[in-house]
Design a protein around this nucleic acid. Structure first.
Lengths: 364, 364
DNA sequence: GTTTTACTGTAAAACGTTTAACAGGCGCCT
DNA sequence: AGGCGCCTGTTAAACGTTTTACAGTAAAAC
């Protein structure tokens, strides 16, 4: 109380006990008699004592803080992830240090280094490349690490949580094919990002095998505005597709912006399947049909894995793969039904060859 | 190198210097000879040494970490703020601990306490009530604190950064009045939040003085989906307004969702002025007219204030007030022009009595 | 009645830094 | 030549905890 910061010593003095006892009361490491505990808590309350985490961590090696690294804090997908993780961490008494790599490998390096300097109990990262970042090399065995969303397709040396990206692409493509679309454009953010590549492959392979035709792929980047400009440009000098699959929430935005700007309506003449599921997607006259990622479940899976590792689990890395599902709304036109109608065939409005996408995880 | 964690001592040994020298090389507190510094850096490099922030902070009292508390990490406005702050913090060599109060006073208390336990160098908070949170009482003089966005209207004992909420409401109302709207509904998130109250007052006062009529105010809460349901309910049992002012990005979403669900078009029969400026607002056929908050500038102002305080500034608290501006797009119908046209008067399509809203800050 | 055992509390030694106090070397001014 | 600063480096003492080793007491076992 002398200089302003009240320490364990002040509390001990006021309660008339040793500092070890105060420590035991707060850390719960050793049992302490009920009335003594009372005295200590009372003294602490009166002095507004708070254990100093730096000191505590220095001595014990236990940090109760986890680092969270994402590529972009302006992308709702990542902030949703962070939001969920914050809740889970808080529930378990952890704090989170968040850092953004802005999709830059150099920055990722340095952000990771500063995160590691805190000696966190764990790390959840959405890396910006396929490889394990250099800064993490030395830590792989030691520090609990979970990679989320962007994970090397061939499995990894650390625990991972991601969706089935290939399937996500397939679901989108299958839906459009079922609705009779044949001229499908695939809008990706960047093919340099492996999960995006997977989604593209999922969509393209399916389309190719169904239509025997190679679908066009455009890269719109990770910025909504620039992506919109790019896509507008593209639209102005190419034949209009009958449908576009946007493989990212940002590319969805880019796609919609460009179409809006060119006054091209949805779903006629152009249908759209978007990615992710956010409130703005249903806050429009023609609600957006989209591939839903189970973000909450991903966060939970990542957190649970991290918890297990932090609790000492030394089993080989696991790779959780979550299922995506199609949230059907109004942005896809049913060309098939129209064709049938035109040909005055059987009514049978929805010949639905889609398989129901269960949203549960499969652990390898 | 023995147990796995490499310390300053290992580096000192390998470089053949004292630990103080190593410390000086890394902290830069005292100058150290060029070749010695080289030796030290080389040794550190080889051992992959990283200074332990807990130990460093314990001894020096310097944390190089700031706490960031927001009410909701699922609200784009707050995550945008966090995103900007992360960039600024990174630039200046700080890390950020982020916590969400989920708009709950009790949780805010406990989150603040755990943030404070880190002995951060500063704190940027968007509090969930008007008052200075209990947990911060003791820190007000000591710890650099900046409140953002939600600040007590009468000024505060800590530095604050916010927009001119009253004016924001006025700008929205003025725009609608200028466009000939007379039946204006004000959609707020919660009147318990003081900045929202201010925005409501700004809009209502202006409308009242222009029309001599009390506008209706609805509270839609801070969750987009629940707000949409609430608003839908409201719309079903009240006379349809000619325009809606949504005073929050979330209420904007709620408003649009409800209208979309009821198949009510925008801007005819219902015009909408939204809040904030996000990509999804222009990714629609009728782009959304909205009140733009200068988030980047707010973050910068908050950070600069915090930096100054952290550098020892002891002057009385300042209160930055930023200007909002109207981003006009297509969601407001010009009833005035139509009326004129109908009366076959002068063409004069845009009698625009709005004052241009400069977006620069004023410091009190 | 003495020895174990169990239980609680304490003293003191860490933890890995920073920093105050100090020491040695060298140039500079009387 | 001796004294004074300045520069650079070292030693050792913090910082506020946790934790190990130990001591004292009471209950249980012999």
């Amino acid at each position: 109380m002398d200089n302003g910061r009240v320490t364990i010593r002040d509390v001990a003095a006021r309660a008339g006990v040793s500092i070890a006892t105060v420590s035991n009361v707060f850390s719960g490491n050793k049992p302490v008699n009920a009335d003594l505990r009372e005295r200590v808590l009372k003294a602490a309350e009166e002095l507004a004592y708070q254990v100093d985490r730096a000191a505590s961590q220095l001595r014990s090696g236990q940090a109760r803080v986890v680092g969270v690294l994402v590529p972009d804090l302006d992308d709702v997908f990542f902030t949703s992830l962070v939001s969920q993780l914050e809740v889970l961490a808080e529930r378990d008494g952890y704090d989170i240090l968040v850092a953004s790599s802005r999709d830059d490998l150099g920055l990722e390096q340095s952000r990771l280094r500063t995160l590691l300097a805190w000696r966190p109990s764990g790390l959840i990262a959405v890396p910006c490349s396929d490889a394990v970042p250099e800064a993490l090399r030395g830590e792989v065995g030691r520090l609990p690490i979970v990679f989320a969303d962007r994970v090397p397709p061939e499995g990894s040396i650390v625990d991972t949580v991601a969706i089935d990206n290939r399937e996500a692409g397939e679901i989108a493509a299958r839906h459009l094919l079922a609705k009779g679309h044949r001229d499908i454009l695939v809008a990706a953010s960047s093919l340099a990002i492996s999960p995006i590549r997977e989604r593209v492959h999922g969509a393209c392979d399916l389309i190719r095998s169904a239509l025997d035709r190679e679908p066009t792929v455009v890269e719109l980047g990770s910025n909504a505005d620039r992506g919109a400009a790019t896509f507008r440009h593209w639209l102005e000098r190419h034949k209009q597709p009958s449908a576009v699959i946007a493989l990212t929430n940002v590319t969805t935005l880019s796609t919609l912006s460009a179409l809006a700007r060119l006054r091209i309506d949805i779903p006629d003449p152009v249908s759209v399947v978007g990615f992710d599921d956010y409130p703005w997607m249903s806050a429009r006259k023609t609600g957006l049909t989209a591939i839903r990622q189970p973000i909450a479940e991903m966060a939970e899976a990542a957190w649970n894995r991290l918890r297990a590792r932090m609790a000492g689990d030394r089993t080989p890395p696991t790779h959780s793969v979550m299922q995506t599902s199609l949230q059907a709304r109004d942005s896809v036109r049913d060309l098939a039904a129209m064709a049938e109608h035109a040909g005055s065939r059987d009514p049978d409005p929805l010949p639905n060859p889609e398989r129901p996408a269960a949203s549960r995880k499969a652990v390898h």
